[in-house]
Each structure stands twice: as structure tokens, then as C-alpha cells.
Write a protein that binds this DNA or RNA. Structure first.
Length: 449
RNA sequence: GGCCCCGUCGUCUAGCCCGGUCUAGGACGCCAGGUUUUCAUCCUGGAAACACGGAUUCAAAUUCCGUCGGGGUCACCA
């Protein structure tokens, strides 16, 4: 069996899009599974709209997502103009295409940019049926296509002409692309048959939709891969999620690394219907990946995102942060929300909140005083561990009512109604701060009464 | 509108090809309880779907037809 060759041919007219990324991914999964080659090539026959900047963005995106590819040589269609010209000539000589003077049918398109004569494909008005690996036989009557234009002039090919020529010359065996291309297929088959080329196998994957089923666009949130990157999503999670949108592995597994997806991939398991992009599930998946990230990685992200640089505290915040975030951007949100403040400086206390509900100032003061004693008995050397602290005060808390004892402590330490548990906080801020903050709370309670 | 594709919980889906094992399973989200107070985790439980109408059949989510709904596409863009 011939070697599988596929292609991912974006048009660099915009930033790398979530939908394109998924197309690239499916092409890669299939190709890798078959032991083939996937080429990247840029379809830039529309010189006006294409930009170098977008090419770079697409490449950076593929690299970030770690989707492997092979660059076509040449990389751009704009570098193959002479080849297209030959095919165009051949088509014209065979009588399969012809040069025409003006726009057909009068939709007023007196295009001003047109110089020279357009090349039209002579439509045989036939019925084209192709077998799509995902949806079975698909059939079109090409009559409605009329004699469609395949080149602005003999030197300036349009999309369909270039695609057919490239796919043939590159030896592409499988064309895997978005469903929006399904109606382009008969046109391309017509051209390729006129040229005597063999048909590749087609597979049109369903599109991704916005929550309202409309086309995914900026107004629904991020569509550019860059945005996910800067929001702090992990590339492996994004790739994993994208694969799950429209494909279910036989194993039914959800969270799986790229290599495992390759091992299970089969186009027949790709769905025919479109799917809605659900950011919530992506967040959940991303969290699953964060959960197994090494401590050093979490620590590095914390250091990057908290205002107090080089405080040496990031290492101590790792498990606390890991437990609370779905994506790196959540660390920024925590920092902005003041959720790290009490690790760096003593909090301002609202005395009325020290006792907690169901208790009173005198009781709270008594508990805090006792806690200060119990904690002063802790060994005075080395880092404190949450377990150690818990052990020192747990029996007392149990005896007196956990909430009555633990709330005042936690509040005295953090000044927040919500925070991690007091043992964790205490271990991080250390002996001096613990003692000072308890002391502050006690004297505040005394002054009040 | 023409043509093409699609139609299982709110969402992603399993099941459909080879009708009965489906009082339709899982995941996300949601709701309610529980765990070492609060937050976050975590655990348990719950609500939640075969678009509709016919046909075939002893039997249909699974087959066929129609309707409705959704999407794609109708460029000298790709």
C-alpha cells in the first residue's frame, strides 16, 4: 500500500484559528497512525490578503501545540506560479478550459482589478460522486457550477487550480479538511480528472460551532490559539480537547496524551455532525493536566505571576495553588483578588469577624490565647509543616468545637472570610507572623471589650 | 432560496452498521448531601435526551419515507 501523504494548507489571511488547529490535528493523527507524512503549505494565491505575520503565527501555533508537520518545498503557492501556468495551458489545449473576456452572468461584477482574460473551466455538466471517509457517498450535480473561473489569467491561478496542482504534485493521498470545503470537492475533482490525475481520498470533518450554533467568532470569546496560550491553557490540554470535539476513541478515554490518540485514531470514529465548543470542559481538562504537572512547573508559574518576586515563597504555595486553579491565568486572578496578600503582610482585621458565627469575643479571645500557648511549644527550628501545626492544636479544637477555635485562628491569620485552612497558612507565614497576628487579634478583642 | 451535510441529556458523547441485553451508559456543567470550621479540592446522590409523524416488524434510539430543525456553500476569497 502506498505511503499516506496528507496536507495542512492554511491560507495565511488571519491568526491561527482554533478550527484550523483542529483540522491540522486530525490530519496529523491520521497521518501519524498510518506512518505517513503531513505537509504544511501556505495557500497564498490571494496576495492581497496574505501576510507574513500570519504565516509566522500559524507556525508558532503548530509548534506550541506540538503538532508535528513537514514543510512543503516550496512552502508557498506563490512560489509555484510557473507550474500552475503549465497546467492551465494543458487544460486550455485540451479544451477543458478557455480564456474568457468578461464576467459571466451579470452580477455586476465589473471587477476593476482584472487585467487580461480570466480562465474558465469548461463544465461537462455531469454528476460527481465521491466517497467521503466520514459521511459516505456524497453526490453533486455540477451543472449549477457553470463554467467556473480557475484563474484570474493564465499567470494568476485561483484556489481550486492551485490546490489540485499541489495535491497532485505532492502526491497527496488523503484530503482531510473542514466540512466547509465539501462543496469545493466536485470542482476540484472536475479539474483533476481533466488533467488525468488520480483522486485522493476525501474526509470532511465537522465544524466547531459557538454555543448558539453559529460560526465560532471573536464575539463568543477566544478563537485565536494565541489567546488560549496567553490565558494560560496548556497546549496538551487544548489539543486533547480539540481531538475530543468530533472524535471518540474506541477506548472511550477522555484525557489522553497525543501519542495515545495517535494509537487509537481512525477516521471512521470521527463524527459527522458539528460540535459546540464548550469552554467549561476545556477548563476542566486543563485542570486535569495541571493536577499532574511537576511542582517546579507550578512554582515557576507562581513566581511569574505574583507581585512579590523572589520572595522565596512560591515553593510553599505550590499545592495550595494547584488545588485552586484551572489554568495559569487563574493565578493572576487570585493575585488580583488579594488572595496572596496575607502571605506577605499582616492583614487588617475586622474585629467583629474574629469570633465567627455562633461565638463571641470573649470566647474567641480565650481560644486565641490558648492557641498561642500551644503553638509556642512547637520546635523553634526548621520549617513548619501544616501537619505539625494541626497536631499541636487539634485535640484542643476538637474539645472546644472546631469551628469556634479554628475560625478565629484562620481569620486572625488571614483577615479573610475565605482562605486556605489555618494550618496551611500558618506553616507558610512562619512562627513570628503567627505569633504576631494572634497577638494583634487578642489585643484588638481586649480593646473592644 | 438552490444544492450538500447533519439531528441521543444544557454541552461533548456511547449505543445505530449486525433491530430485542436501553426502565438509553459515561463525561463537563448544574443541584443536594458528606469529609479536618470558611474557600478550594475530594466523595456520594440527583435532575436532565432518543426532534416530530408515518411505514416495516412479534419487537425500532437502532431500518425506510416524510416533516421540522440546525449547519455548510453558492466570488476574478480560500
Amino acid at each position: 500500500m502506498a505511503k499516506v501523504i496528507t496536507r495542512f494548507p492554511p491560507s495565511p489571511t488571519g491568526y491561527f484559528h482554533i478550527g484550523s488547529a483542529r483540522t491540522a490535528l486530525f490530519n496529523y493523527l491520521f497521518t501519524a497512525r498510518e506512518g505517513g507524512v503531513m505537509y504544511l503549505r501556505f495557500e497564498d494565491t490571494d496576495r492581497e490578503r496574505c501576510k507574513k505575520e500570519f504565516e509566522e503565527d500559524i507556525i508558532a501555533g503548530l509548534d506550541w501545540l506540538k503538532i508535528p508537520y513537514t514543510s512543503a518545498v516550496p512552502l508557498r503557492q506563490s512560489e509555484r506560479l510557473s507550474t500552475y501556468r503549465e497546467y492551465l495551458r494543458a487544460l486550455i489545449e485540451k479544451g477543458a478550459a478557455y480564456e474568457a473576456e468578461e464576467a459571466e452572468g451579470g452580477n455586476g461584477s465589473t471587477s476593476l482589478t482584472t487585467k487580461g482574460r480570466v480562465v474558465r473551466f469548461k463544465n461537462p455538466n455531469t454528476r460527481i460522486t465521491f466517497n467521503d471517509l466520514i459521511r459516505g457517498d456524497v453526490s453533486f450535480d455540477t451543472t449549477e457550477l457553470k463554467d467556473f473561473v480557475i484563474a484570474r489569467n493564465v499567470d494568476d491561478p485561483l484556489y481550486h487550480m492551485a490546490v489540485v496542482a499541489d495535491d497532485h504534485d505532492m502526491g497527496v493521498t488523503h484530503v482531510i479538511r473542514g466540512e466547509d470545503h465539501i462543496s469545493n470537492t466536485p470542482r476540484q475533482i472536475l479539474i483533476l480528472e481533466a488533467l488525468g490525475f488520480e483522486r485522493p481520498v476525501y474526509a470532511h470533518i465537522p465544524l466547531i460551532h459557538a454555543p448558539d450554533r453559529s460560526k465560532l467568532s471573536k464575539r463568543h470569546g477566544a478563537v485565536s490559539i494565541n489567546e488560549y496560550r496567553s490565558d494560560g491553557y496548556l497546549p496538551e490540554a487544548l489539543v486533547n480537547y480539540l481531538a475530543l470535539l468530533g472524535w471518540t476513541p474506541p477506548s472511550g478515554r477522555e484525557k489522553m496524551p497525543l501519542a495515545d490518540m495517535v494509537a487509537e485514531f481512525d477516521l471512521k470514529d470521527v463524527h459527522a455532525g458539528g460540535a459546540i465548543f464548550d469552554i467549561e470542559k476545556l477548563r476542566w481538562l486543563n485542570r486535569q493536566y495541571i493536577l499532574e504537572m511537576p511542582d517546579e512547573r507550578i512554582q515557576a508559574e507562581i513566581e511569574l505571576r505574583i507581585p512579590e518576586k523572589n520572595s522565596g515563597i512560591a515553593a510553599k504555595l505550590v499545592s495550595l495553588v494547584r488545588e485552586r486553579i484551572h489554568l495559569w491565568g487563574d493565578i493572576d486572578a487570585m493575585a488580583k483578588g488579594g488572595e496572596f496578600d496575607y502571605f506577605f503582610s499582616d492583614p487588617a482585621l475586622d474585629i467583629s469577624k474574629v469570633p465567627g458565627k455562633g461565638s463571641d469575643a470573649a470566647t474567641a479571645r480565650r481560644h486565641l490565647a490558648r492557641l498561642r500557648e500551644l503553638l509556642s511549644a512547637l520546635p523553634s527550628l526548621g520549617n513548619l509543616e501544616p501537619e505539625q501545626i494541626k497536631k499541636a492544636i487539634w485535640d484542643y479544637a476538637e474539645a472546644e468545637g472546631r469551628g469556634n477555635v479554628l475560625w478565629p485562628l484562620r481569620y486572625a491569620l488571614t483577615g479573610k472570610e475565605r482562605s486556605p485552612d489555618p494550618f496551611t497558612v500558618a506553616a507558610i507565614i512562619g512562627r513570628d507572623s503567627i505569633e504576631r497576628r494572634i497577638e494583634t487579634a487578642i489585643s484588638a478583642l481586649e480593646n473592644r471589650s
